[in-house]
Protein backbone atom coordinates (compact mmCIF):
# COMPACT_ATOMS: atom_id res chain seq x y z
CA UNK A 1 0.00 0.00 0.00
CA UNK A 2 2.76 2.42 0.90
CA UNK A 3 4.22 3.96 -2.23
CA UNK A 4 7.34 6.02 -2.85
CA UNK A 5 5.33 9.14 -3.61
CA UNK A 6 5.90 11.80 -0.97
CA UNK A 7 2.51 13.08 0.09
CA UNK A 8 3.71 15.14 3.04
CA UNK A 9 7.03 16.96 2.81
CA UNK A 10 8.38 18.80 5.82
CA UNK A 11 11.70 20.65 5.67
CA UNK A 12 13.18 22.45 8.66
CA UNK A 13 9.87 23.12 10.32
CA UNK A 14 10.28 25.42 13.33
CA UNK A 15 7.54 26.57 15.66
CA UNK A 16 8.29 28.88 18.55
CA UNK A 17 5.98 30.15 21.24
CA UNK A 18 7.89 33.13 22.56
CA UNK A 19 11.30 31.74 23.51
CA UNK A 20 9.98 28.18 23.80
CA UNK A 21 10.81 26.04 20.79
CA UNK A 22 8.03 23.49 20.35
CA UNK A 23 9.24 22.15 16.99
CA UNK A 24 12.97 22.38 16.38
CA UNK A 25 13.88 21.96 12.69
CA UNK A 26 11.72 18.96 11.88
CA UNK A 27 12.45 17.33 8.53
CA UNK A 28 10.59 14.26 7.32
CA UNK A 29 8.48 12.84 4.49
CA UNK A 30 5.37 10.72 4.54
CA UNK A 31 4.60 8.39 1.61
CA UNK A 32 1.20 8.02 0.07
CA UNK A 33 -0.75 5.12 1.56
CA UNK A 34 1.47 4.52 4.55
CA UNK A 35 0.62 4.55 8.23
CA UNK A 36 3.04 7.03 9.69
CA UNK A 37 3.43 6.98 13.47
CA UNK A 38 4.40 10.23 15.07
CA UNK A 39 5.62 9.14 18.48
CA UNK A 40 6.77 10.95 21.57
CA UNK A 41 6.02 11.58 25.20
CA UNK A 42 3.43 14.14 26.23
CA UNK A 43 4.78 17.59 25.56
CA UNK A 44 7.28 16.46 22.94
CA UNK A 45 5.68 18.75 20.35
CA UNK A 46 3.56 16.23 18.44
CA UNK A 47 0.32 18.12 18.69
CA UNK A 48 2.00 21.37 17.67
CA UNK A 49 3.32 19.70 14.54
CA UNK A 50 0.06 18.01 13.62
CA UNK A 51 -1.81 21.29 14.08
CA UNK A 52 0.55 22.95 11.63
CA UNK A 53 0.10 20.15 9.11
CA UNK A 54 -3.68 20.52 9.39
CA UNK A 55 -3.58 24.27 8.94
CA UNK A 56 -4.67 25.09 12.49
CA UNK A 57 -1.56 27.16 13.05
CA UNK A 58 1.30 28.59 11.02
CA UNK A 59 4.92 27.52 11.44
CA UNK A 60 7.46 30.11 12.53
CA UNK A 61 9.69 29.00 9.64
CA UNK A 62 10.23 26.04 7.37
CA UNK A 63 8.63 24.47 4.33
CA UNK A 64 5.61 22.21 4.46
CA UNK A 65 3.70 20.78 1.51
CA UNK A 66 0.68 18.52 1.73
CA UNK A 67 -0.19 16.60 -1.43
CA UNK A 68 2.00 19.02 -3.35
CA UNK A 69 0.21 22.05 -1.93
CA UNK A 70 1.94 24.74 0.08
CA UNK A 71 0.51 25.27 3.57
CA UNK A 72 1.05 29.01 3.48
CA UNK A 73 -0.61 29.73 0.19
CA UNK A 74 -2.89 26.82 -0.64
CA UNK A 75 -4.53 26.18 2.64
CA UNK A 76 -8.10 26.12 1.31
CA UNK A 77 -7.27 23.42 -1.24
CA UNK A 78 -5.46 21.39 1.41
CA UNK A 79 -8.49 21.49 3.68
CA UNK A 80 -10.59 19.61 1.15
CA UNK A 81 -8.09 16.76 0.93
CA UNK A 82 -7.49 16.03 4.58
CA UNK A 83 -9.41 14.63 7.52
CA UNK A 84 -8.65 15.32 11.15
CA UNK A 85 -9.56 13.76 14.45
CA UNK A 86 -8.34 15.47 17.59
CA UNK A 87 -7.29 13.85 20.84
CA UNK A 88 -10.45 15.04 22.45
CA UNK A 89 -13.51 13.17 21.37
CA UNK A 90 -15.08 15.31 18.72
CA UNK A 91 -18.57 14.39 17.66
CA UNK A 92 -21.47 16.51 18.83
CA UNK A 93 -23.00 14.53 21.65
CA UNK A 94 -26.38 16.20 21.42
CA UNK A 95 -26.79 15.05 17.83
CA UNK A 96 -27.49 11.52 16.66
CA UNK A 97 -24.94 9.56 14.69
CA UNK A 98 -26.89 10.20 11.49
CA UNK A 99 -27.03 13.92 12.17
CA UNK A 100 -23.30 14.06 12.88
CA UNK A 101 -22.53 12.27 9.64
CA UNK A 102 -24.87 14.50 7.66
CA UNK A 103 -23.33 17.58 9.23
CA UNK A 104 -19.70 16.71 8.56
CA UNK A 105 -20.40 15.31 5.12
CA UNK A 106 -22.35 18.49 4.36
CA UNK A 107 -19.46 20.64 5.51
CA UNK A 108 -17.22 18.85 3.02
CA UNK A 109 -19.71 19.53 0.29
CA UNK A 110 -20.93 15.98 -0.33
CA UNK A 111 -24.18 15.73 -2.22
CA UNK A 112 -27.27 14.49 -0.48
CA UNK A 113 -27.21 11.26 -2.46
CA UNK A 114 -23.56 10.66 -1.52
CA UNK A 115 -24.32 11.36 2.11
CA UNK A 116 -27.19 8.89 2.09
CA UNK A 117 -25.15 6.16 0.43
CA UNK A 118 -22.10 6.57 2.64
CA UNK A 119 -24.18 6.68 5.78
CA UNK A 120 -25.95 3.49 4.77
CA UNK A 121 -22.64 1.81 3.92
CA UNK A 122 -21.14 2.80 7.24
CA UNK A 123 -24.19 1.69 9.21
CA UNK A 124 -24.12 -1.69 7.43
CA UNK A 125 -20.41 -2.19 7.86
CA UNK A 126 -20.27 -1.38 11.57
CA UNK A 127 -23.74 -2.83 12.24
CA UNK A 128 -25.04 0.39 13.69
CA UNK A 129 -28.70 -0.11 12.89
CA UNK A 130 -29.70 -0.15 16.52
CA UNK A 131 -27.88 3.04 17.45
CA UNK A 132 -28.21 5.14 14.32
CA UNK A 133 -31.01 7.21 15.80
CA UNK A 134 -29.54 7.57 19.29
CA UNK A 135 -27.82 10.68 20.56
CA UNK A 136 -24.05 10.25 20.69
CA UNK A 137 -24.02 10.93 24.42
CA UNK A 138 -26.10 7.80 25.01
CA UNK A 139 -23.50 5.55 23.36
CA UNK A 140 -20.78 3.61 25.20
CA UNK A 141 -17.38 5.40 25.11
CA UNK A 142 -15.69 2.74 23.01
CA UNK A 143 -18.13 3.33 20.20
CA UNK A 144 -17.67 7.07 20.16
CA UNK A 145 -14.00 6.88 19.20
CA UNK A 146 -14.65 4.51 16.33
CA UNK A 147 -17.52 6.63 15.10
CA UNK A 148 -15.44 9.80 15.35
CA UNK A 149 -12.89 8.15 13.07
CA UNK A 150 -15.56 7.06 10.62
CA UNK A 151 -17.01 10.54 10.55
CA UNK A 152 -13.59 12.18 10.17
CA UNK A 153 -13.01 10.08 7.05
CA UNK A 154 -16.56 10.25 5.65
CA UNK A 155 -15.41 12.47 2.78
CA UNK A 156 -12.71 9.94 1.80
CA UNK A 157 -9.76 12.30 2.27
CA UNK A 158 -6.40 11.40 0.80
CA UNK A 159 -4.72 11.96 4.14
CA UNK A 160 -6.14 11.65 7.62
CA UNK A 161 -4.47 13.14 10.70
CA UNK A 162 -5.22 11.43 13.99
CA UNK A 163 -4.04 13.20 17.12
CA UNK A 164 -3.83 10.67 19.97
CA UNK A 165 -6.96 8.93 18.77
CA UNK A 166 -6.70 6.09 21.27
CA UNK A 167 -5.79 7.92 24.45
CA UNK A 168 -7.97 6.78 27.30
CA UNK A 169 -9.50 3.91 25.35
CA UNK A 170 -9.61 0.29 26.54
CA UNK A 171 -7.30 -2.26 24.82
CA UNK A 172 -10.06 -4.09 22.95
CA UNK A 173 -11.41 -0.91 21.45
CA UNK A 174 -7.88 0.19 20.60
CA UNK A 175 -7.39 -3.07 18.74
CA UNK A 176 -10.64 -2.54 16.81
CA UNK A 177 -9.68 1.04 16.16
CA UNK A 178 -6.42 -0.01 14.57
CA UNK A 179 -8.28 -2.50 12.41
CA UNK A 180 -10.30 0.41 11.07
CA UNK A 181 -7.09 2.35 10.40
CA UNK A 182 -5.70 -0.61 8.47
CA UNK A 183 -8.89 -0.78 6.49
CA UNK A 184 -8.58 2.84 5.42
CA UNK A 185 -4.89 2.50 4.63
CA UNK A 186 -5.80 -0.52 2.53
CA UNK A 187 -8.05 1.75 0.48
CA UNK A 188 -5.03 3.98 -0.20
CA UNK A 189 -5.57 6.60 2.48
CA UNK A 190 -2.44 8.01 4.10
CA UNK A 191 -2.70 7.86 7.88
CA UNK A 192 -0.67 10.22 10.05
CA UNK A 193 -1.14 9.22 13.66
CA UNK A 194 0.35 10.56 16.88
CA UNK A 195 0.44 8.41 19.96
CA UNK A 196 2.34 7.96 23.17
CA UNK A 197 1.51 4.24 23.39
CA UNK A 198 4.71 2.52 22.25
CA UNK A 199 3.00 -0.78 21.58
CA UNK A 200 0.90 0.96 18.92
CA UNK A 201 4.08 1.98 17.17
CA UNK A 202 4.46 -1.57 15.93
CA UNK A 203 1.23 -1.22 13.95
CA UNK A 204 2.72 1.63 11.94
CA UNK A 205 4.60 1.36 8.65
CA UNK A 206 7.22 3.86 9.76
CA UNK A 207 7.58 5.83 12.94
CA UNK A 208 9.36 8.95 14.02
CA UNK A 209 10.30 9.40 17.66
CA UNK A 210 10.17 12.90 18.97
CA UNK A 211 11.41 14.40 22.17
CA UNK A 212 11.76 18.01 23.27
CA UNK A 213 10.79 19.31 19.87
CA UNK A 214 13.28 17.25 17.86
CA UNK A 215 12.95 14.05 15.85
CA UNK A 216 15.53 11.57 17.17
CA UNK A 217 14.77 8.53 15.07
CA UNK A 218 12.76 7.75 11.94
CA UNK A 219 12.44 4.29 10.44
CA UNK A 220 10.30 1.18 10.32
CA UNK A 221 9.69 -0.36 13.73
CA UNK A 222 11.61 -3.51 12.75
CA UNK A 223 14.66 -1.50 11.69
CA UNK A 224 14.61 0.54 14.88
CA UNK A 225 14.36 -2.58 17.03
CA UNK A 226 17.32 -4.17 15.31
CA UNK A 227 19.31 -0.94 15.22
CA UNK A 228 19.06 -0.48 18.99
CA UNK A 229 19.30 -4.23 19.48
CA UNK A 230 16.27 -4.47 21.75
CA UNK A 231 13.08 -6.58 21.86
CA UNK A 232 10.32 -4.04 21.25
CA UNK A 233 9.45 -0.41 20.57
CA UNK A 234 9.05 0.34 24.25
CA UNK A 235 12.73 -0.39 24.75
CA UNK A 236 13.67 1.57 21.64
CA UNK A 237 11.99 4.53 23.18
CA UNK A 238 13.75 4.02 26.52
CA UNK A 239 17.13 3.82 24.75
CA UNK A 240 16.50 7.03 22.88
CA UNK A 241 15.32 8.78 26.05
CA UNK A 242 18.52 7.67 27.84
CA UNK A 243 20.72 8.83 24.98
CA UNK A 244 19.12 12.27 25.19
CA UNK A 245 19.73 12.41 28.91
CA UNK A 246 23.34 11.33 28.45
CA UNK A 247 23.88 14.21 26.02
Amino acid sequence: MATQEKVIKVINLVKKFGSFVANDHLTFDVFRGEIFGFLGANGAGKTTAIRILCGLSYPTSGEVTIDGLDIYRQREQIKKRIGYMSQRFSLYDDLTLGENIRFYAGVYGLSREDIRQRTAALVDKLELHAIEKKLIRELPPGWKQKLAFSVATIHQPGIVFLDEPTSGVDPITRRQFWEMIYDKAGEGMTVFVTTHYMDEAEYCGRVSIMSEGKIHALDTPAQLISKYNVRNMDEVFLRIARNIEAV
Binding site: L91, Y92, Y104
Partner: peptide, 14 residues
Protein backbone atom coordinates in the same frame (compact mmCIF):
# COMPACT_ATOMS: atom_id res chain seq x y z
CA UNK B 1 -14.20 23.14 24.93
CA UNK B 2 -15.50 20.08 23.11
CA UNK B 3 -12.73 20.27 20.53
CA UNK B 4 -15.21 20.41 17.69
CA UNK B 5 -14.06 23.93 16.85
CA UNK B 6 -10.77 22.48 15.60
CA UNK B 7 -12.64 20.14 13.33
CA UNK B 8 -14.56 23.03 11.91
CA UNK B 9 -11.39 25.03 11.39
CA UNK B 10 -9.74 22.11 9.62
CA UNK B 11 -12.77 21.74 7.36
CA UNK B 12 -13.22 23.72 4.15
CA UNK B 13 -15.62 26.07 5.96
CA UNK B 14 -14.26 29.59 6.06
Amino acid sequence: ELGTMELLLVSPLK
